[in-house]
Write a protein that binds this DNA or RNA. Structure first.
Lengths: 107, 107
DNA sequence: GCCATGGTTCGACTCCTTTGGAATAGTCGT
DNA sequence: ACGACTATTCCAAAGGAGTCGAACCATGGC
């Protein structure tokens, strides 16, 4: 069909193109690391649910952190209705950086 | 004895006090990560030897990176004659963050 | 004691990151 | 089509990190 405009897709990097230093940097912020931990423990969540853990953080700030994680290949961010679902790219990360995520999550 | 002034000791943090995010941040810079890799592969080296890999980097810049690594608990920096020896705190790191260093060095 | 050597610290500059308010865009219900 | 809801992007302000020359400090040799 003609107007098959997708519901606002964000770009996700191929993990093969992501540098280790980029991943480490994304994880080096306490807010972002906490979010990754939460996703690892609870599974995929909407942005709203994620934000529930730290309600004082403005939406734009939170969105920026999500972007940093997404561009580092750590999470996906897909539309679902009028929400968005954030998910950890666990298997892919394990393939690219074996043991890294487990080591980071182990604390 | 009275004037037992030590040969210029730098302070090294107790690894129990070091946050994971601090370690990840220290490792998130390509120059610093390369240095850690080199120390892991070659064992302890003098600052001069370390600097040999990247001769174009000014001494002060290199020293700053060493400081960041040291304050993150990743390396020790001890005087030896008029040189200084830099060493990876491997066993200690393994105790505090099991698997982390191996995962990072695996690439 | 004096000088050369090896390294850190200081200070200044630039760039990037973080932050957050406002504007914008997509989706659902009516 | 309109409004409510969810979330990103835009833009600017403030803070922090990287870079590097110059000053400083400690050690060893003469």
């Amino acid at each position: 069909m003609a107007g098959d405009r997708q519901p606002r897709l964000l770009t996700h990097p191929d993990l093969g193109d992501v540098e280790l230093t980029t991943v480490l940097f994304a994880l080096s912020d306490p807010s972002r690391l906490a979010l990754v931990r939460e996703l690892a423990a609870e599974g995929p969540r909407t942005v709203e649910e994620c934000r529930g853990s730290e309600p004082d953080v403005p939406k734009s700030t939170f969105s920026h952190h999500l972007r940093t994680l997404r561009e580092a290949g750590l999470v996906t961010n897909e539309p679902l209705g009028r929400r968005r679902v954030v998910a950890l790219r666990r298997e892919e990360l394990e393939g690219r950086f074996p043991g890294l995520l487990d080591a980071v999550l182990g604390h």
